[in-house]
Design a protein around this nucleic acid. Structure first.
Length: 283
DNA sequence: ATGTGTTCCTGTCCGC
DNA sequence: TGCGGACAGGAACACA
């Protein structure tokens, strides 16, 4: 679920709680999420200091003092719940572990971070920090959308002669990392591009338009604390509010938000995922 | 090499 | 109120 803005929001929420603290206790409440959890996970976490929290695409990476890195992926429904933290000046007791609380990390200052994931499409793994980028889940990822590698020139090269719809291309994490269904729909709407357009048939001008719009949508969403749909919340339990800024996502039948456009938002299914768009101003 | 469909799992919502 | 079906933010995998 969570796409780059939600994952970045979670990372920012966890950073002051976790960075610099030692994992006093790790409670692994079930042996597997999407994949089996790594061998001896509790022992490999216990007593280690968290030196920093990074994000790569939709993954959170916690670098540990042991020279290992904890990889966290939230899948569709994963959440990182914080309790007992003094950050913000309030102290709350830990709630009793609830349904779908799969991994519980107790830190040395009494704070607790709980990985909760109803659907269990999420994942956790441990790897040697120096080899993190070779991890199978990370090695094929495309460039970060805010990085220098991601450019109009890069996109032109990668989309050249591709017959795949631009919607599917932008969802492909090997092309650019971090976009998901919501933000691809929003980007294509802002770019005035119909989601079924063949990626390779876009003009250089249209492709050039995409790069800054991808950054714009993601930056606005991060600024808003992500989108809270259904059960997604920030690390502290707060709701993001970017969903109020959706122009097409989940707005089937509603009026197009583009100034001067009298179109209606449509929904189609492309490779099993809903695409929302305005057929008047997206072509 | 590309592109598409299926699958994992649980929860919620909507129509009958 | 129950029941069945559609659908949900992801992405690995199998297959044409």
């Amino acid at each position: 679920m969570p796409e780059l803005p939600e994952v970045e929001t979670v990372r920012r929420g966890l950073e002051p709680v976790m960075t610099g603290h030692i994992i006093a206790r790790a409670d692994i409440r079930r042996p597997d999420l999407r994949f089996p959890l790594p061998a001896r996970m509790a022992e490999r976490l216990t007593g280690k200091r968290i030196d920093g929290l990074r994000r790569r695409s939709k993954y959170i990476l916690a670098d540990l003092s042991s020279g290992e890195t904890l990889l966290i992926h939230l899948g569709m429904s994963g959440r990182m719940l914080v309790s007992g933290s003094m950050i913000g000046g309030f102290h709350h007791d830990h709630p009793t572990p609830a349904k779908h609380d799969h991994v519980v990390l107790d830190l040395d200052d009494g704070a607790r971070v709980t990985f909760n994931d109803a659907r269990r499409f999420g994942a956790m793994d441990l790897m040697v920090t120096a080899e993190a980028e070779m991890h199978p889940l990370l090695s094929s990822l495309g460039p970060e959308p805010f990085g220098n590698v991601f450019s109009e020139e890069y996109l032109l090269g990668r989309l050249h002669r591709r017959t795949m719809p631009i919607k599917a291309a932008l969802l492909d994490q090997r092309l650019v990392a971090g976009l998901g269904n919501i933000y691809v729909c929003e980007v294509l709407h802002r770019a005035g591009l119909h989601p079924t357009r063949a990626a390779g048939a876009l003009t250089p001008d249209e492709i050039g338009r995409l790069v800054p719009l991808i950054r714009e949508v993601l930056a606005e969403a991060i600024e808003a604390g992500g989108s809270s749909l259904r059960d997604y919340r920030q690390a502290g339990g707060e709701l993001g509010y970017f969903q109020h800024s959706f122009r097409v996502y989940d707005r089937e039948g509603q009026g197009c938000a583009t100034l001067g456009c009298d179109g209606t938002v449509s929904r189609i299914v492309q490779s099993g995922r809903s695409s929302f768009f305005c057929s008047s101003c997206q072509s």
